[in-house]
Design a protein around this nucleic acid. Structure first.
Lengths: 250, 250
DNA sequence: CGTGCTTTTGAAAATCATCAAGTATAGTGG
DNA sequence: CCACTATACTTGATGATTTTCAAAAGCACG
């Protein structure tokens, strides 16, 4: 459930002249479409805020007046039904851009998993910025297109895969984004996958219950496909077999 | 299953000087971002083709060298698992833009439901066009953002809703896009919903089986929420009750 | 008026959810 | 440092929704 504590803290603009120039998230985000010379203008639009773990900083249904760009930490995105059923639509990290929608209310909620820092842009101002920097708009389109593909893949998972296949797909995907830039084929040996989210989060992401997630992981372990060092550390023992399960080739 | 007949027929460029100027789909598509004066250039890039009902004109996994814009008819988009399980990710009609993805292969297949006519743009050429017409890029971003929101809604449906709730949501959504522009609140009386797709398509869209779709529609009928004139014509009798079911407020 | 298809309906089976209890783990305070 | 508590995770038994298997009913078409 979304926690409704106080509002996130707005940080003082960093003392430095141009925070965007030194932003570690820049190379991972759409902000890398802005040339160095223009970073000051970008920085002037951004309001840096942060939210502690467990705090929600976007609430589904609220007026959507801002875009967000995550510069530190990670968060989960989700939608709720009235009786509390939750569907997590994604886990996002540094560089992720949020709030891309035409609607005047947010279509999802976002809650920090670890402490999150983010830049907040007012919709109107960012729109004007995009008019001047078509390269950034191009990057946003790329990002949106990539997410659309991921969303379709998740629909296939939620609509047609078994619990076992969902867990296998989830673990494979986690390997894929382990170290961005690392070759996704270097899995001859055992690969360690860290799961920073709870079983409850995994369940709500995969459309299952926590019990089914737990049982299914146990079965994957008994079948020799993975090993469980701790609840949050899975070692993929047989990558190819796991991949076969994930794609329904069992 | 995807039908693999011969290739779609490429039509002769229409005799008229500027087919885009007279295109009925223009106002419904991203092409309305191009000014009249520039339509000739747009038209020079488009290759008009068509596919008869049942023919697939995009195949998941094939090299993605083109974008598509549907100018007549309708199609279903889907992804397949190796054993034939299918997830339909959307039904698309006139004005819909397809192929927005960074990947070098298509992430989904598209199959005509009724005879489809579409404009095909080579990726490279359209990319150059977008450089010159940022307004069109803006429209594409809007479209992508809107689809992303719809995809998240569908994830909620597939991951967390019951069969009854899925059917109710589906019917409500169908009303919403009945006549684009019509007020979505004018449902005091009974509203007729036409389902141009088969039970099998509905099932694969909602992550169910055809039997469950059929049974669930029957139950909605017995409960007085809808009436079934024919398999493809549903009359929504109690819109508010159906909406309550759709949002999990049973 | 068959023939082939889609849809509906029925009975049995299976997967996954729910309910319930037990085990591990981390954090807290004595 | 050790118990104690709270929380998360795992495991077990039962149950419900949905799937699967099967057959009948409805429709279009030749």
């Amino acid at each position: 459930m979304a926690s409704r504590l106080t509002h996130p803290v707005v940080l003082d603009p960093q003392g430095g002249i141009d925070p965007c120039a030194t932003c570690e998230a820049r190379q991972l985000s759409v902000c890398n479409a802005i040339a160095d010379a223009d970073l000051a203008r970008l920085a002037s639009l951004a309001v840096v805020s942060e939210a502690p773990a467990g705090r929600s900083f976007i609430d589904e249904g609220e007026p959507a007046d801002s875009f967000f760009n995550i510069t530190a930490g990670s968060a989960k995105l989700f939608k709720l039904l009235r009786d509390g059923r939750r569907q997590i639509t994604g886990f996002v990290g540094v560089g992720h851009f949020l709030g891309l929608a035409v609607s005047d209310t947010y279509a999802f909620s976002a809650e920090a998993m670890e402490p999150v820092r983010y830049c907040r842009f007012s919709r109107g101002k960012l729109r004007k910025l995009l008019d001047d920097f078509p390269l950034m708009e191009k990057r946003l389109l790329e990002v949106a297109a990539t997410e659309l593909v991921a969303a379709q893949e998740q629909m296939l998972l939620l609509g047609r895969k078994t619990a076992r296949e969902r867990l296998a797909s989830f673990l494979i995907a986690r390997i894929g984004l382990g170290i961005p830039g690392a070759p996704p084929c270097a899995h001859q040996g055992a690969t360690r996958v860290v799961l920073p989210m709870s079983r409850s989060d995994i369940a709500d992401y995969l459309g299952l219950t926590i019990e089914t997630v737990s049982r299914t992981l146990t079965r994957l372990r008994l079948d020799g496909l993975v090993a469980l060092d701790s609840p949050s550390e899975v070692v993929v023992v047989d990558y190819l077999a796991l991949e076969r399960v994930a794609t329904g080739m069992v």
